[in-house]
């Protein structure tokens, strides 16, 4: 079982409750959302920061074994074009689980009219892997697992 640490400190929210069909319909894979109480997003796994969007509102980390985690801070927040977001790492960096990646201002983002529910999804989960949700309703960034990835069968 591989733990995916919570990138955020806050309340755990099922993807079904995220008002964005791309996440709620699992187009980008299984996962869960967090309603962040603090303005820091950390790396959920150890790996390469393969994408950090120019608006600093979303990033993806890929582990050495190919496992990829996408972290999206708020919904439709690309429209803020970086306002209220600050990058603390660079695209291409090798990062440790728990390492701060983006600092953001929850109050400012909410005041601009954006929903801050932040999906954490596994977009290209290989066949034979399954995720398991945690029972916790509150999580601390970089400390508490948000999901577990399990191998259910060895394909090939």
């Amino acid at each position: 079982m591989v733990p995916i640490l919570s990138p955020f400190t806050g309340r755990v929210v099922p993807l079904d409750e995220v008002p964005d069909p791309v996440f709620a319909e699992r187009m980008l894979g299984e996962g869960v959302a967090v309603d962040p109480g603090e303005g820091i997003a950390v790396a959920p796994i150890r790996g390469r920061l393969v994408v950090l969007h120019s608006a600093n509102h979303a990033f993806a980390i890929e582990a050495e074994n190919g496992l990829k985690v996408l972290v999206h801070i708020g919904l439709d927040t690309v429209h803020l074009r970086g306002e209220g977001f600050e990058r603390l790492a660079h695209e291409g960096d090798w990062v440790e689980a728990g390492q701060p990646i983006v600092r953001f201002e929850p109050g400012r983002i909410r005041a601009a009219g954006y929903c801050l529910l932040s999906p954490v999804v596994l977009p290209d989960l290989p066949e034979g892997y399954r995720i398991q949700h945690v029972t916790a309703s509150e999580v601390v960034a970089g400390r508490d697992p948000l999901l577990y990835v399990m191998v259910v069968s060895h394909a090939g």
Binding site: V22, L28, V51, H57, A58, F59, L70, V78, P123
Partner: peptide
């Protein structure tokens, strides 16, 4: 046309 992290808008 704009690019979010995973979608074209």
């Amino acid at each position: 046309l704009d690019g979010c992290i995973t979608r074209l808008r």
